[in-house]
């Protein structure tokens, strides 16, 4: 396929996710499926990247930080599909001696990963640091970060949220995966996040909301976020998503946060996801 559409790539990424998690008999399919559209859009359209020769410093490139590291399957798939490493390596996910650790890590040298994540709440701070580094280096590139909505229960997120506008960080666009679910149930039941837009606004951020499965809506939000450069304030995009999106029996429930499908469930899932590129 010469020029697959974004939808075709995203569907293939979803196939990769369920196959990887099934292959490892562990992993986090729900949030991964929910963020497949955003990561596909970022890596295949929005971000300026040099995927041929991975540079830890990312000089002259846009950077992406996955703060909710447990949705590593979607990131690994998108990185492989974008050419950071061989697609065949997706088969090693979570297996002994793999570069595709359960949660993203740099120790094994997987191209595309710049910092470990998994213990939640640290990625916003790291993204802010990288954004400040770019500003000090005189770059006009962008830093993107992604966070779970449940992750916002971590206090460090709000330390970072306070810090960024104070230091006039405005080359950062952060996404929150608002699927309303976490391990123990709905975010409303586990620890109500309240008025998220109001909270970010009160911390001094530009706040946008959009449908996380609508490429056009995401494009529009990102373009608007980019127009905030020069304001001295970063932008957060509260992105409404469906956990498990694309696989009907996984959609909209926390049950598929962190479990793997069995053989029959894998078949049911793959039947709903057309092979857009070629399976690994």
């Amino acid at each position: 396929m010469e020029h697959p559409t974004l939808s075709q790539v995203a569907t293939q990424v979803r196939r990769d996710i369920v196959r990887m998690v099934h292959g490892a008999s562990s992993g986090h399919p729900g949030g991964s499926l929910g963020c497949a559209d955003l990561l596909t859009l970022l890596y295949f359209e929005v971000m300026h990247l040099n995927s041929d020769e991975f540079d830890m410093n990312g000089t002259g490139e846009d950077l992406f930080f996955l703060s909710n590291g447990h949705i590593s399957p979607v990131w690994y798939s998108v990185l492989a599909r974008r050419g950071y490493f061989p697609v065949s390596e997706l088969a090693t996910f979570r297996k002994l001696n793999t570069r595709l650790q359960g949660h993203p890590a740099t120790e094994e040298g997987l191209p595309g990963i710049r910092i470990a994540s998994g213990s939640l709440g640290q990625g916003l701070s790291a993204a802010i640091g990288a954004a400040q580094s770019k500003t000090m280096n005189g770059e006009s590139t962008w830093v993107f970060s992604l966070h779970g909505d449940g992750e916002l229960q971590e206090g460090q997120i709000w330390e970072a949220a306070m810090y960024a506008p104070h230091h006039r960080v405005d080359n950062l666009i952060s996404f929150v995966d608002c699927n309303g679910q976490q391990i123990d149930g709905s975010t409303d039941d586990v620890m109500n996040l309240g008025d998220l837009a109001g909270k970010w606004k009160a911390f001094g951020w530009h706040v946008l909301t959009c449908d996380g499965h609508d490429f056009e809506a995401l494009r529009k939000a990102i373009a608007e976020a980019k127009s905030n450069r020069g304001s001295g304030r970063p932008t957060v995009i509260l992105m409404k998503t469906e956990m498990g999106k694309g696989v009907d029996f996984m959609e909209g429930t926390h049950e598929w946060h962190g479990i793997a499908p069995n053989d029959a469930q894998l078949e049911r899932a793959l039947a709903q996801l057309t092979e857009g590129l070629t399976d690994y």
């Binding site: 640091g129 400040q132 580094s133 810090y163 230091h167």
Partner: peptide, 28 residues
């Protein structure tokens, strides 16, 4: 002054911001 960052009373944020700054070649 342009290379000094006051973080306030937020040490967790300071450590992770410092980690992020190394990406781009800074030595925090």
């Amino acid at each position: 002054p342009d290379r000094f960052f006051q973080v306030g009373i937020a040490e967790a944020n300071m450590m992770s911001v410092a980690a992020g700054m190394t990406i781009g070649g800074k030595i925090p």
